[in-house]
Amino acid sequence: MTGTSDRRRVTSADVAREAKVSRATVSYVLNDSPHQKIPEATRRRVREAAARLGYAPSAAARLLRRGRSDIVLGLLPDWPIEHVLGRLVQQLTDALAQHELTFLVHSAAHPARPLREVWRALTPAAVLALDAFPVAEADAVRAAGIEVVMAVHDSVRSGRGSALVSEEPIGAEQARHLAHAHRRLGYAYPDLARLGGLARARLDGVREVCAELGLPAPDVRTVPVDQEGAVQAVKAWLAADPPVTGVCAFNDAAALAVLGALRSLGLRAPEDLAVIGVDDIPGAALAQPPLTTVVRDTDAIARGLARRIADALEGAQVSADPLLESLRVQVRVSA
């Protein structure tokens, strides 16, 4: 027994016969072709016939019709694929689908297939990098005829393109929230070097607010997601002169590590040390105490990125400015 099927692929001709219309009418209806005066009853009959037969237009046919692929190649950096990144990938998939584009992701985590082999095999319509994109690679992609190359968290410095999502406002939002009651802030830096680009940008936001408000520069400590390392960071903050009384954490995972360290020392948040995270992961509300955190609208980010990609593919002028992003602080007990 083989893994192949004897079932013949359903074609537009089959749909036309089933619906008793021409193949051209099937094409006009299923492709939503403009300026075609086709009665609604006929359109409904064609769609019902296509659904009944399980008809799906071939990728090759779509490519010929559009003159390009419908694939957007998403390049994932070597980051932990956790709740927030997984949610963003799903939202990008949905948002790009609204523009009839297919989002495929490739992770840079070792030992992944080399990026150049991937985009050459797929010949995507566009490339969206969630982090840095090497200039030489971007030039090679464009030389192959893939004109739309965008980077979310870093600049594509050759030709068009710039960072599309800014991280500094997140750190600034954290610092402004704590600065109402705290005059010395700390920053819980992640212990994963590959997250350094995001962490530095968020830390810059904290530093800018501290300088603006006349506060000392934040006391930066690396906080591993383990009790011993987090305890050492908390002790150092409390022993500082003057002591740190509020901590901006890189993300909720780092914030939860700080809360755990406080409990192990017999201390409490926010009485002994206030803590604010980022992302509002599912466990944030269940923490002891419940974690105050900055919430970002990743769905709006996904829709904004999808719109810029679709506009660029249509040859429209696309802004190089960062996307406007709404942030809010989910206030709970920890800060």
Rank of each mutant, 00 (worst) to 15 (best):
H110S: 15
G197P: 00
A109P: 03
V220I: 10
R116L: 11
R17T: 13
V149H: 00
S155F: 09
H35W: 12
E100Y: 08
A144V: 04
P34D: 09
L75Q: 10
V247S: 04
K235P: 03
A217W: 03
V294A: 05
V234K: 00
T293S: 07
T298Y: 15
A163L: 15
A302Y: 05
V295L: 11
V165W: 01
V331P: 02
E228Q: 14
P77L: 04
A211E: 13
I281H: 07
D280N: 10
A138E: 05
E208S: 15
A129K: 01
D297F: 10
G159H: 02
V89I: 15
R9H: 08
P242F: 05
A132F: 03
R7P: 00
V220D: 09
R8Y: 04
P218C: 01
D6M: 15
A240K: 03
L92I: 08
S334W: 13
V72W: 06
L185R: 03
Q330F: 09
P77Q: 04
A335K: 08
L305M: 04
A181Y: 07
H83Y: 14
D78G: 06
H83Q: 12
V275H: 01
V295M: 11
V135W: 03
V331E: 09
A253P: 11
S27L: 14
R184T: 10
L101Q: 02
L259T: 02
Q227P: 09
A254I: 12
H182Y: 08
A61L: 02
G214P: 01
H99Y: 08
A50C: 06
K235D: 12
I71T: 13
A163Q: 07
E48R: 05
V223R: 07
